[in-house]
Structure formats: C-alpha cells, structure tokens
C-alpha cells in the first residue's frame, strides 16, 4: 500500500500537468505574462545626455515600435536601462527582459546578447520570434548610438 499511494499520486499529478500544458500552448508563457503585466524599467532617459544611448526600431511586418535607452558610466558599465514599446505582449515582454539583462553589463557584454536567449527565456512561439529580434536590434541600436556620441565627444 505504501508503494501504491505515491504512484497513484504521481499518476494523477501527471494528468493535471499535461492538462496545464495544453492550456499554455494555446496562450502566452507565464514569463511573458509576468513581464507584460509588470514591465520592468518603463520610461525614458535624457536623449541629449552624452552617457545615454538611444535605440529606436520598428517592425514593418507588425507595426510595433520600440525605444530602448541605456545609461553608461565612465567604466563602460551599463548602470540604467529604460524602454518604451508600443506593440504586442511579446514585444513588450522582450524589451522589458532586455533592459533587465543589460543592466550591470559592460557595453561589450551587452553586444553579445542574442535574440534567441530572449526567445528561450520567454518561450516565444515561432510566429513571435521577430519580437525578440526587435529587442536585440533595439539594444544594438542603443549601443551604437552611445558609441557614436562618445566618439564625437572625443573629436
């Protein structure tokens, strides 16, 4: 009997788990919903600030726009990141996650961030992969804007 009970329990649990998965495939992953409902780092930084890089990108296929800004200290470390996205839940979640991830990284480390990492963390379905791509491009654009600002400053 002692052997049987946990097995019955496991069996029942497995059932309810598969049931749960079936629901989840039809909607967004919990991570997406979390970032969508409680987006991190929404807002703007001063565009004219020399230590701020701004990336503005858009997805022509879905009409989403995304603005991502980073603030870098004198050691090349990203100390703050903000975003503003008008688009679907996946695009908002992708940019929210991206700002969380780049914070505390150096400029070079942030450049290595890949959209596949974002997509994996959020379990984005194939049709929503371009949303994570948008976030990657926004980071790249912000970093390049920062670099250009720094170079013109030196000259």
């Amino acid at each position: 009997m002692a052997f049987l009970l946990p097995n019955i329990y496991k069996c029942l649990c497995f059932r309810s788990q598969t049931g749960l998965n079936a629901v989840q495939t039809a909607s967004y992953h919990a991570n997406v919903i979390d970032h969508y409902e409680n987006p991190r780092n929404v807002g703007s930084l001063d565009k004219k600030d020399k230590s701020v890089g701004t990336g503005l990108v858009g997805a022509p296929a879905c009409g989403d726009v995304m603005k991502l800004q980073i603030k870098v200290d004198e050691n090349g470390k990203i100390i703050d990141a903000k975003f503003k996205t008008f688009g679907c839940g996946s695009a908002i979640a992708s940019s929210s996650l991206a700002t969380e991830w780049v914070k505390g990284k150096t400029v070079d480390e942030a450049l290595k961030l890949k959209n596949t990492d974002i997509a994996k963390e959020l379990s984005l379905p194939p049709v929503k992969l371009h949303c994570s791509m948008l976030a990657e491009d926004a980071i790249k654009a912000a970093l390049s804007d920062y670099r250009i600002k720094q170079q013109t400053d030196k000259n």
Partner: peptide, 8 residues
C-alpha cells in the same frame, strides 16, 4: 512586407 527591423 519584409520582417527585418526598420531604421527610417
């Protein structure tokens, strides 16, 4: 319509 991100 292309999927790539736009830079205009």
């Amino acid at each position: 319509i292309p999927e790539n991100t736009e830079a205009d």
